[in-house]
Amino acid sequence: MLKIENLSVEINGKQILKDISLEVKKGEVLVLFGPNGSGKTSLLMTIMGFPRYKVVNGRILFKGQDITHLPVYERARLGIGISFQRPPTITGLKTRDLVKRCADDKEIDIETLAKELNFTNLLDRDVNDGLSGGEIKRSELLQLMVQQPDLVLLDEPESGVDLENIALIGEAIKGLLGRAPVKAISCRSLKEEKLRKKRSGIIITHTGHILKYVPADRGKILYKGKMCIGGNPFEILEQISKYGYQECIRCLGINNSI
């Protein structure tokens, strides 16, 4: 699904990501750990194609196609979707109108979907305008659920979300990743429903709370712009909480060069 080869990225001339290689297979969910400022958000933003993140080396392949230089909207149309850590406010644009636009001509019952996400009362608010941290996460998920991308990039989907809403968000992400049925999305035929495919995802998390709900196949740590470790996400999380990032990386003897 996604293949990244020797990717190096700069922002304003400063190197943020160093020689990263990574693969996410069809239907696979990868969890990305790493301390603040290590480059996790930057990696997702680069995959999505925001021009601020300048690829100075390497390439990104999606569904076999080199997308390294494609504009953002073409990547979106190819099937990549992102939930932002800090999305901008757009005054005057109703969330409902944006969600409708994301749905395009897909048959999606936006009202039911919004209800499932406990978002009904917020549909008529301007996009992200004055939304709380948790509300923003739900807004992002709503847009993604309507967009139905094949590769879902989730940047700390559970941060700032209260305990009740975290279950709700967890279920939504499960649906988004094709691991649970979504009522509001009507399939044109039963066959299609049966064929409901598992989607791929990269999830950034600090706490790992979301892993209670979302099946994760693999974990990795991004440290100071370098991709360090691959393994069982629960084990990695345990190591990090026991020993801390630096210690963890050293103990595991991986990538001592940092």
Binding site: M48, F50, P51, P71, V72, Y73, A76, R77, G81, I82, F84, P87, P88, I90, L98, R101, C102, D104, Q143, Q147
Partner: peptide
Amino acid sequence: EIEYLMARGLDE
């Protein structure tokens, strides 16, 4: 803001 909407599939 433009880029945000582009990430949802809208062209510039």
